[in-house]
Design a protein around this nucleic acid. Structure first.
Length: 809
DNA sequence: GGTTAGGTTTCG
């Protein structure tokens, strides 16, 4: 038996043959006698089981000597044959193993992984792995949260939780519960832990006493028909239950029972975690959580489904969870699912949200007039669209939340009130008389009745439905902003230090005003000083494009849904399929996108060249995976090329899908300029296999990520639209490729744009830009020559802070 | 290893 699992609770060393002696991993070298020696360590990484040929497996794992963090105490272990297969089944990441019967080889990856310079090779009858397991804990409720390995790991802990029915709760205990949500409030700011009286008494303030805390309030029920109030305090919003509507199901771990007002309530306690499920019968049982370590098994799935059907039979869930604008009744309170188009802070206690849901309200709606320069998002819309837009006034505590909303966000607004014949409204100007039959939408201050706003995730079914309703309407092409240009003075020279950008070109020319510039001939470079009046698109993903340097075409990044569909279609093509001779086939486990789902094997192809060099993580050709699975696997392999079977042959996917996944980065090829084919890569002597090498081998013309934005700039004389494109990277100081893959780079762009065009700030406060503009002529669709301006040789420089606070680190 | 809140509107 090559893999030997020691009995539960066996002490370390139990049942390991006595003639074997343990040596420290750090002492392993090619020169020592390893007969009758063992090494012991914790499995810190467990690679996938790879099928090399019929019934020949290979698996790589890293074990680390416990109590030691030094690199040389972690060693690669390569398992072959049945041992690899058995190890894959019996051993989990985190297990402590003892290995015997190994041989010592040179680690080919020492420079890369900085682990032990040797590796252990284990194959044949002598090789044996002993696994020591700790006894399972008696009381699962007293355990800390189960931590799962890195994202790639597909293990699900075997730990079991017990759940107490809501009818069986006893005071003074810590329990795990399930329940159907019958009432909820979105997380709201609590007073926090800074207690003024305490502070005065102690005159000492500890750092953690100052933290803001959020509080969620909900009421749940189950088959016992008990309705139990729950209060959740967490500093982080993402740790709160993600409840979208009544009927959602929550599972909470480690809540304590308390007696309050003659009934039992639940409050989160140390180690608390919560997952939420949609309450609709028949939909996927997908846990909503931001936690990476969810324990979720078949039993949980069953519990959720039982609660769903019980709730359905009890008519707990309202038939119409939210009201479309078309069905809004005057004086009524209602929940609205909508998309935010624009917003404008009106005063410190009130913000205007301009939303739509694709339906038209039969009542005349109040329209709030605001100054264009306080509006975030488009300042005007086509008349057709305007007719569908509802203006919502949100007050007090909701103003702060509204600050974080971005045009384009999908929202659910709870307990909105339709007020007929509205009286005074901030921002309403005399140009619009207050008419009695207007309906105004107010989100009053406070959190009573669950009043609040929630951003819905893109993948929620309600958002999908909303998108369909909205897509039925044509897009507004141009913003017909007829607002008169407000005149702002050009800054005096002494304010030059407040400029937010500088030119780095070599043109030595005097700045001109925008109106002068427009009179000059095209085809030359100009310098201007201007402020950013507006820009588009506001959504970064709409600014990111793919550009082909060969045919100069520009295209949008394919929509995730479209790509996901391509992967799905590709996976449906049945085998068998012949792979070229330079590829070896094997199988790996698909990551589970749903913890309850069954294990699925995916076919992978590896180049025999790379395989012989033990470079199996550097490039794989992956078949039959979904987009999400490919993404997840990309954290474990340097390069993943998705492939499919087509007409019995192995081919690449359609070029609408990325042809390559490199970590978080995806690469696309030009459909026009590529001649894709599966050709062998020459990797000998190539240290880093990257997108260029792969694209070249596969006959793909690589598309470049570019950022394309239109800046509307203004000075005292005129406005002008200028494109930022070729020099966007030097303007923002981050590459579009980074922006496509990395949140930090995205934040950097958002911060830059916010400082150039502060949401809610007046134009007067905006920094001035020193710009180098290239004026040229481009043809529009009708073949007409149009002037076009491009921002070049200009870099954003952070305008100096106006207050004296030190810069944050 | 524990406080915060502990549903219930309606003013703008």
């Amino acid at each position: 038996m090559p893999v030997c699992v020691l009995p539960e609770g066996a002490g370390p060393g139990a049942q390991i043959p006595t003639h074997l002696t343990r040596i420290p991993i750090s002492l392993i070298s090619n020169n020592i006698d390893i007969s009758n020696k063992t090494v012991k360590g914790k499995v810190v990484r467990k690679g996938p089981l790879v099928l090399l040929a019929a019934d020949n497996f290979i698996l790589k794992t890293v074990i680390q000597e416990e109590d030691s963090q030094a690199d040389a105490s972690s060693i690669n272990v390569v398992l072959m044959g049945t041992l690899a297969k058995d190890f894959n089944q019996a051993v989990n990441q985190g297990d402590v193993v003892v290995a015997s019967g190994f041989t010592v080889g040179k680690s080919p990856t020492v420079h890369k992984d900085k682990l032990h310079p040797c590796n252990l090779l284990m194959s044949g009858d002598n090789a044996c792995i002993y696994v020591a397991r700790l006894p399972p804990p008696r009381d699962p409720t007293s355990l800390p949260a189960v931590k799962r390995g890195p994202a790639l790991s597909t293990e699900v802990s075997t730990q079991k939780y017990t759940y107490v029915g809501l009818g069986d709760l006893k005071t003074g205990s810590v329990v795990n519960v399930y329940g159907v949500v019958v009432f909820f409030k979105q997380p709201f700011k609590s007073r926090g832990t800074e207690d003024a009286t305490q502070y005065a008494k102690d005159n000492i303030r500890l750092a953690h006493d100052n933290t803001v805390n959020f509080c969620s309030s909900l009421k749940i029920t189950d088959q016992s028909n008990q309705k139990i109030g729950c209060t959740i305090f967490c500093e982080k919003l993402e740790d709160h239950p993600k409840i979208f509507k009544i009927g959602d199901i929550v599972r909470m771990h480690r809540v304590k029972t308390q007696f309050f007002n003659d009934s039992i309530t639940l409050v989160n306690t140390f180690g608390f975690s919560v997952v939420t499920f949609d309450g609709a019968v028949g939909t996927n049982v997908e846990p909503r959580t931001s936690s990476r370590s969810v324990h979720f098994d078949q039993k949980d799935c069953q519990t959720v489904e039982e609660l769903r059907s019980w709730a359905a039979s009890q008519a707990l869930i309202p038939s119409v969870p939210t009201t479309p604008l078309s069905a809004v009744q005057p004086k009524a309170y209602f929940d609205l699912t909508c998309q935010l188009l624009a917003k404008a802070p009106l005063d410190t206690t009130c913000t205007l949200l301009r939303v739509w849901d694709g339906t038209r309200c039969p009542h005349t709606l109040l329209k709030v007039i605001v100054e264009p320069n306080v509006t975030v998002g488009p300042t005007s819309f086509s008349t057709d669209r305007e007719n569908l837009i509802a203006d919502i006034l949100v007050y007090d505590n909701h103003v702060e939340f509204a600050r974080q909303l971005k045009p384009g966000d999908f929202l659910r607004i709870y307990n909105l009130r339709a007020i007929p014949g509205s009286s005074k409204v901030p921002g309403l100007t005399s140009s619009q008389p207050v008419e009695v039959d207007h309906l105004a939408f107010h989100l009053h201050g406070g959190t009573a009745y669950g009043r609040g706003i929630r951003v819905l995730p893109q993948n929620s079914p309600d958002v999908q439905e909303l998108k369909r309703a909205i897509e039925a309407f044509p897009e507004d092409d141009e913003l017909n902003d007829s607002a008169l240009l407000e005149i702002w003075g050009t800054p005096p020279e002494s304010l030059a230090s407040l400029r937010a950008s500088e030119r780095n070109c070599t043109h030595d020319i005097e700045p001109v005003t925008l109106s002068e510039l427009k009179r000059f001939n095209l085809g030359r470079v100009h310098h201007v000083r201007a402020q950013l009046r507006s820009y588009k698109p506001h959504r970064l993903h709409q600014a990111l494009k793919l550009y082909c340097s060969k045919c100069s075409s520009m295209q949008d990044i394919p929509d995730d849904e479209v790509v996901a569909h391509l992967f799905l279609e590709a996976s449906k093509e049945p085998g068998p399929c012949s792979a070229p001779p330079w590829l070896l086939s094997g199988q790996i486990d698909a990551p589970k996108d749903n913890p309850g789902s069954l294990k699925r094997a995916l076919t992978v192809h590896l180049s025999s060249q790379l395989m012989s060099e033990s470079r199996t993580k550097e490039l794989i050709f992956l078949m039959g995976s979904t987009l999400e699975e490919t993404r997840q696997l990309a954290s474990g392999y340097q390069n993943i090329v998705p492939v499919r079977s087509s007409g019995g042959h192995l081919t690449l996917l359609d070029l609408s899908a990325p042809f390559l996944f490199r970590g978080r980065r995806k690469y696309y090829g030009c459909r026009r300029c590529s001649e894709p084919a599966l050709r062998e890569l020459c990797t000998e002597g190539v240290e880093l296999i990257d997108e260029t090498i792969i694209a070249k081998a596969l006959g793909i013309q690589l598309l470049q990520y570019v950022l394309l934005m239109a800046f509307e700039v203004q000075d005292a004389t005129d406005t002008l639209e200028a494109f930022l494109w070729r020099d966007a990277e030097s303007f923002f100081g981050v590459s579009p490729e980074e922006v496509a893959a990395n949140q930090e780079a995205q934040n950097c762009i958002h911060q830059t744009m916010d400082s150039l065009c502060p949401p809610g700030g007046s134009t007067g406060q905006r920094p001035w830009l020193d710009l180098c503009l290239m004026a040229s002529r481009t043809e529009d669709d009708g073949g007409q020559k149009q002037p076009s301006y491009q921002i070049c040789h200009t870099a954003f420089t952070k305008p100096p802070s106006t207050h004296s606070d030190p810069e944050p680190a």
